[in-house]
Structures are given as C-alpha cells and as structure tokens.
Design a protein around this nucleic acid. Structure first.
Lengths: 150, 150
DNA sequence: TATTGTTATACTCTATAACTATA
DNA sequence: TATAGTTATAGAGTATAACAATA
C-alpha cells in the first residue's frame, strides 16, 4: 500500500515564530506599512522622515554624520538630499571648519513640514502601540534597544 | 552681528529612538546581519530559510500557502523553488486534490540541510537573545507578536 | 468566472568602484 | 595619505500585468 501524499490545511509556522529575527521583522514591516500610508501626504518615506527629523534636531549635521546615524551609504543619500533641496525643504551650507563638508539645514518650509510629520508619527505611535499598555510599550522599546545596541 | 553657523558633535537621535518602527527595524536588521553570516555555509538567505523550514514542517504545502504565510508574492517565489529543485533540496509533486497546484516536499538532502540550519538558528537565537534574560526573551517575543498580529 | 503557477518586466533599495576637492 | 561628497553602475528585493491550465 502506497504512502498517501500529504496536504496542508493549516500552515504551521511554530518554529519561525520562536525566532527573534522573524518576529522583529514582521513587527517592523507591520509598523512601517502604516507609517507609509500616514506619511504619504507629506511626500515622505520612512528614510526620508528619518533624514529630515535628524536634520531638524541637529542643524548643521553633515551627510557623513547622517549616514553613520542611519546606516545609509553616502551614494544613496545624495539623491535624497537633492530632492529635498528641489522641494526647498533643505539647504546645503558650507561647513564652518571643514571645507570638504556641507552642513545641512532646514528651510522654514522644511521645519514646518517635519513638525507636522513628527506630530503624525507620534499619533501613529499611540495607535499602533495602543494594543500595548504604556508599561508594555516602554518595555518593548527597552528590550529592542538592548538587542541592537552593542 | 551675524548668527554663527552651527555644527554637530554628537548626533541627537532622541526622537527617532522613541518610535517603535525605528527600533523594531534596527533590531531586526541587527539580528538578520548575524543570521546572514551563520546561514552562508548552508547557502541560505533569511527568506530561503523560512521557505525550507515551512516546507519541512508542512510537507505538501503549496506555493500559494507559502506566499500567504511569509508575505511573499508568487512571482518572487518561483525562482527560489527552482533553485531549491536544482540543488535537489525540494521536489514538486502534483497536488492530490487540486490539479492546478503543486505540493512541495523536501528530499532527504533537504531534510538534513534544514535540520542542521534550524539547529544553527536556535544556537544563534540563544546568543543574540543572550543579552536578555529568558523572561525578557519571552516578553519580547510576546510583545512583538502583539504588534504585528491583527 | 476565479484560482494556481508561471513569465516577463519594472521599480525600488542597497552596494561597489572611482573621481574631485579639501584635510 | 585620508576623508567628504559625488557620480555611475550593478545587484537584490519587491511590485504589477498577463497568460495557460485547472477549478
């Protein structure tokens, strides 16, 4: 008697769900999906938001510092900054102490945009993380940082 | 007197670090980086591992079921399965009840490979999550799932 | 008419090499 | 000699449209 060919009704993802990497990736994709929708009105993708936010909180930051902080490669930042300059959100100014570098600064339009966008991000945060109690939210952020900070 | 142009010594990433999406992404990238190194000897990238692992635990699973479980699009799975067939790790068998579908099964070589790879993954898990106490590990996984499961 | 698997293709993201100007 | 910024380009990863076979 031949062995019957098995079929699958309910997919068992048990092993994958036991892995930190799998769960962290799924969670980040879920959050980023909502983020993408909410940031579309501002014309910002997640990385764009990160860049503008860092320039807002660090006026005069250089491309190199941005790349280091966000894990972006320099060639891939150039296009972003160019777009921001075309949209008149960012200005490149000569660095006061280093003739090779350019300091990045927000225009007043850029400041207004990122102020609104950060408010939206904070709101989204409250919703998405709203399935967790405030204590759980703090715990989650703390544990995540513990994982990725060396 | 002109306003001096500011420069940045220490980059302030405070706002970004308050966002769940940012932290989840950083954590998942950190884990995946180590995962990539450890899986290289098996010739598996993270998605490859997920696919093989699901086929191992769900013999006869169809492409469509795999795509749904992993959030992959069907056209992007085809190439992967083809590679696995060429490496003689996976076999496509006609589905017993649905002439359109193909059931996926591991060869004995595929079974051995994924058994070793899963052992390596569990080991890696113990190391990476080793910065956390066992209780913290359980908490982290539980909270992450709470975020991405609707 | 809808679904599975597939092909072809396009778009985005990320990565590498090399150039320039300044240090 | 090394670094900041840039250009050009290559490679992954991810997305959409359309088709044949089957339900």
């Amino acid at each position: 008697m031949a062995k019957p060919v098995p079929t699958v009704e309910q997919v068992d993802t048990g092993f994958l769900e036991s892995l930190l990497g799998y769960n962290a990736r799924r969670a980040s994709l879920a959050v980023i999906e909502v983020f993408l929708e909410r940031m579309a009105p501002y014309g910002l993708k997640p990385v764009d938001f990160s860049v503008l936010s860092l320039v807002a909180h660090n006026p005069g930051i250089t491309s190199r510092q941005l790349c280091a902080a966000l894990g972006i490669l320099p060639p891939n930042l150039v296009g972003m900054v160019n777009q921001f300059e075309k949209r008149e959100l960012i200005e490149r100014q000569p660095h006061p102490h280093d003739g090779r570098a350019m300091g990045l600064h927000l225009t007043s339009a850029g400041q207004k945009l990122i102020r609104d966008a950060e408010r939206t991000a904070a709101q989204l945060e409250a919703e998405v993380a709203g399935r967790l109690t405030p204590a759980e939210q703090r715990t989650l952020l703390r544990l995540l940082r513990k994982v990725y900070l060396k």
